[in-house]
C-alpha cells in the first residue's frame, strides 16, 4: 500500500472501515478517542466520491460520523456548490481519509495505541 502524501498534514486512511463495521468496532473506538482530541482543530475530510471538505472539527461519534463547521470544498472548481455550507455532517462510512494538522498528531499516543493493538491483536 502506498498511501498518498499530503504536505504539511498527516493523513489517516479510513477505507477499511467501510467493509466490516462489526469487527472494526474496537479499532473504530481507537480512532474515535483519537479524533475526539482533535475537536476544535482544522481537518480535511476526503470522501469516497473525491470531495474533500476542510473545516473545524466540531464532533465525532463512535461511528466516526464527523461534524464540521466553517467548511469549504478544497477543490472549489469541481464542487462549487460546496463553497459555503456553514456546518456539515459527514457519514462515517463515506469517509476515505482524514487529514490532520501536524500539531494535532500526538506521537506518543500513536506509539501507545500501536503497541496496544500489536499486543491485543
Amino acid at each position: 500500500m502506498a498511501p498518498p502524501l499530503f504536505v504539511g498534514d498527516v493523513t489517516l486512511p479510513l477505507q477499511f472501515l467501510d467493509r466490516k463495521q462489526s469487527r472494526t468496532q474496537s479499532h473504530a473506538m481507537l480512532f474515535f478517542s483519537y479524533f475526539k482530541d482533535l475537536v476544535g482543530r482544522e481537518v480535511t475530510v476526503e470522501l469516497k466520491n473525491d470531495l474533500a471538505i476542510r473545516g473545524t472539527l466540531i464532533s465525532v461519534d463512535q461511528y466516526l460520523n464527523i461534524k464540521l463547521e466553517n467548511t469549504r470544498a478544497v477543490d472549489q472548481d469541481n464542487f462549487p456548490h460546496m463553497l459555503s455550507v456553514r456546518n456539515c455532517f459527514i457519514r462515517g462510512s463515506v469517509v476515505r481519509y482524514v487529514q490532520l494538522p501536524p500539531e494535532g498528531v500526538d506521537v506518543d499516543l500513536l506509539h501507545d495505541a500501536t503497541r496496544r493493538e500489536a499486543r491485543g491483536g
Binding site: 489517516l12 477499511f16 469487527r23 501536524p102 500501536t114 493493538e117 500489536a118
Partner: peptide, 20 residues
C-alpha cells in the same frame, strides 16, 4: 478476520508514525 484487521490498523498507525 480480526487479526488481519488489527494488522491493517497497525500498519496504518506505523505508517502515520513514520511519516510524522
Amino acid at each position: 478476520g480480526d487479526h488481519d484487521l488489527a494488522n491493517t490498523v497497525l500498519q496504518v498507525l506505523l505508517w502515520a508514525l513514520r511519516f510524522y
